[in-house]
Design a protein around this nucleic acid. Structure first.
Lengths: 265, 265
DNA sequence: GAGTGGTCTAGACCACAGA
DNA sequence: CTGTGGTCTAGACCACTCG
């Protein structure tokens, strides 16, 4: 039976993972620095780094350039439940980012945006333009957010960036409406779109995992070799018209996704 | 603005990706072998390997130990639409794996199982037992499949393993029924469960991305550093009882996922 | 500014799959 | 069996970031 040998870095990562999960290495404690551990084990530093990187991808440790490698404070991934998130009642119940904020709060984290939402009229990427059914050269409304989660009292420039979210709306529907305002009010842009007579009733989300672009890696403070989710969210009205396309990019190591739906028996 | 320098291996990967997508390097053509290219570029072999690995993760090339590195025959990922997949009509329309087979056919691939479905009465993993609401020590019905996709005329031991699928059913419902048969008939196990009065009406799927276990890496013919999707599928009856939990493990590089659902406006 | 992880080279050796 | 990719060491140098 094709059973490849377990690489040494994997074994090392598994050993540390066990120590972390057993509580032997508590949250916040520092792991040996790469060069020291390599010397101690008689391994190359690259081997140790691969082990640490695997732990980082699993969300067990956080690596930083000066601070060394530490056991993560939050050992569980953020859960994103796409189904309930988008019902109007849920959206308007607890503020604009209700479901998301509640989920973060459960992990002891606070939601924040890294900078004000960027609102612009510009061309959409080709794939988005096609989905929206607009001409590739035509301007659409773009709302672009950088979403963070901090532990209380953490300096803002050290916060964890958890998601990049860019929404696209057809100009015909959105220009000159409250969708161009900084604050879109209770329930957010989806509720305003509904108020304008373009309520989204059918949502399709496509999930892909890929390497981040250079810009994404920078914004998410991750590296080119750590994969990200790319979720393309497509909102359709009852008539089947696409009124919103949103692209969410988020590091795989921070998130777990969930979908609930009904089927005919 | 934090803009990390693009690593050399990324630049090299991007160059090849462009050449592949432009058609300059046609499907099936062989890339220079790692050691040659490294010598030609004056780089270390590891750098070239990282570039090739990134291309492989993106599904653009296939690396094999003797055959070298070739441009992939199938440049698109397999799409898995979870929503339509599970309606009874869709399931029974085109054979047991209707939606999946149709999707593969669109890519010029044929569906096959690597070995007969393994059917056993045994303990479920702790997490699954909890979801099913059975005692951790209690036996449940396990159906375990290894799913492949081949191009026509490919030797069976060379086929691409695309998914490991393990379903768990409470013994109380499943033991002694057709769910233990090799062939569960039209519509598969979900339809049989429905015939027994336990139709699934609400489906929850949780998606995670993680490193494969050693056994999974072997079965999927992938390596420990390439991530896999782990989809936990939970089927509930109208009364809210969990009657099936299935765990699907599949290489991230081969798949793209899609969900469609209705929301209240 | 100092110290950490990150990238890269150079090259030995290993393990697996294909001709 | 042979040649390919895969793993690993050793060590130089780079770049980021936190104190």
């Amino acid at each position: 039976m094709a059973q490849p040998k377990t690489p040494k870095w994997r074994q090392l990562a598994d050993r540390f993972a066990a120590e972390i999960r057993s509580g032997e290495r508590p949250s916040g404690s520092t792991l040996p620095k790469i060069s020291d551990l390599a010397a101690e084990l008689g391994s190359g530093s690259e081997t140790v780094r691969l082990a640490y990187r695997a732990l980082s991808d699993e969300g067990l440790v956080v690596m930083s350039k000066r601070g060394g490698t530490r056991v993560a404070e939050t050992l569980v991934k953020i859960r994103r439940d796409a189904t309930f998130r988008y019902s109007r009642t849920a959206r308007e119940a607890a503020g604009a980012h209700g479901a998301f904020e509640a989920e973060l709060a459960r992990l002891g984290l606070a939601y924040r945006e890294a900078r004000p939402t960027r609102i612009a009229r510009e061309q959409a990427p080709a794939r988005v333009a096609e989905l929206l059914g607009v001409d590739p050269g035509e301007d659409v409304l773009v709302r672009d957010r950088v979403m963070c989660a901090d532990r209380a009292g953490v300096r803002s420039d050290r916060a964890t960036v958890v998601q990049l979210a860019t929404s696209y709306f057809p100009g015909e529907l959105a220009f000159g409406t409250q969708l161009e305002a900084d604050d879109t009010g209770p329930g957010g842009s989806k509720s305003r779109l509904a108020d304008l007579g373009h309520a989204q009733t059918t949502i399709t989300e496509e999930i892909d995992v890929r390497a981040p672009t250079e810009a994404e890696a920078g914004a998410l403070r991750t590296t080119a070799d750590r994969p990200v989710y790319e979720i393309t969210h497509i909102g359709r009205t009852a008539e089947g018209r696409v009124v919103e396309v949103a692209v969410h990019v988020m590091p795989v190591r921070l998130w777990r996704l969930a979908y609930t739906f009904e089927v005919d028996a």
